[in-house]
Design a protein around this nucleic acid. Sequence first.
RNA 1: GGGUAGUUACCAGAGCGGUCAAAUGGGGCUGACUGUAAAUCAGCUGAAUAUAUCUACGGUGGUUCGAAUCCACCACUGCCCA
Length: 376
Amino acid sequence: MNFILQHTNAKTNARAGLIITEHGVIETPIFIPVGTKGVVKAVHISELEKDIYAKIILSNTYHLYLRPGIEILERSGGLHNFSGWKYPILTDSGGFQLFSLSSNCKIKQEGVEFRSHIDGSKHFFSPEKIIDVQRSIGADIIMAFDECIPSNTNYEYAKKSLTLTENWLDRCLYRFARTKNKYGYSQSLFPIVHGCIYKDLRVKSAEYVASKMAEGNAIGGLSMGETKEKMYEIIEIVNSILPKDKPRYLMGVGTPENILEGIERGIDMFDCIMPTRNGRNGQLFTKMGVINIKNKKWATDFSPIEIKSELNIDKIYTKAYLHHLFFSNEILALQISSIHNLAFYLWLVKEARKHIIIEKFSTWKQKMLINIQNKL
RNA sequence: GGGUAGUUACCAGAGCGGUCAAAUGGGGCUGACUGUAAAUCAGCUGAAUAUAUCUACGGUGGUUCGAAUCCACCACUGCCCA
């Protein structure tokens, strides 16, 4: 994997670049649709490619390890072959699941003992195991094993957790350096900055991560309950330390606003479940603001989902029809909403990139923020 | 004609003397959702000049301190027998 920094905004830290992988080139800033179990829920691969213009998708080590399991992934020739997605893939390490499924986990220095949420069976994840599993999945970008903690964690635990995450990072790097890819193309390992909401821990972590000279770096443990202002502040601190010539990935974020603010502060990659999950739950992100399509007022609105959209799906279907599909419990409702929202997110970062390159990012961002945050 | 079971909020349906404006589903309304155990979850859903008021469990009348709940008659519905 290579990163070419093409342009940095004169007044802000917003950047435009290229991530070059063996499965394709990704223009940054980029949004990564989340496909936890090797599929972006309710979205077909051809839709990802032709309607959404997705360039890379994310899957999850924990979930794929439990199902379908490593053997099937290896026999299929890796996740690209297995899923049919021939463009870049990034896998999350499963660190987030230690947080979201924490009731099933016992975290130790050596690794994590956990019970499967599917059948309750006992398993053990070490940093080494996480690298091995990610080798078997075969994503282009793989993530270090980290502990993800909520923003209200006390300083003592956050400090202890960071030490653990740093120790795990070293073990991930060691294992990564001593293993090979399984399917003939290279993989890149991204370390993850932690430190909760504590500035000194974030600085320490960012310096530690930067010292590893990885091919790209991630910021984790944000939007875990802290205010957005706090999150932006931490992004600024961390990005002032992370190397400029490598891509910076803000994990799990976020709202369209979060993404624009992140881009302004020098983030190149984002992922979030929001466009898909919220879409499935009836929330649509549009250029004019947010729509809850289940609200009664849309039942008789026969205008397109998004006015002035080049997206086919927005031209074909009206708000009233989509409202009807939700109320009729039709699968197509989830498909349309997911495609629309992902296409909106990808459109947003593409426009951001365009405006960074022509040095009009700030004014464009201000204008966008006014519109996209409306509640329609 | 005889017998029998029923009639409860938008719908289905529990309640069978007080703690009932009435369980539970469904439907409807409104929120929430940030590296996905999420096509999920939460709240509201008789009215109001809204903390103990009114109107409501088919209708009318009665028993009782008190009735959706007991009694009488009436209306309607299902089933069975002629």
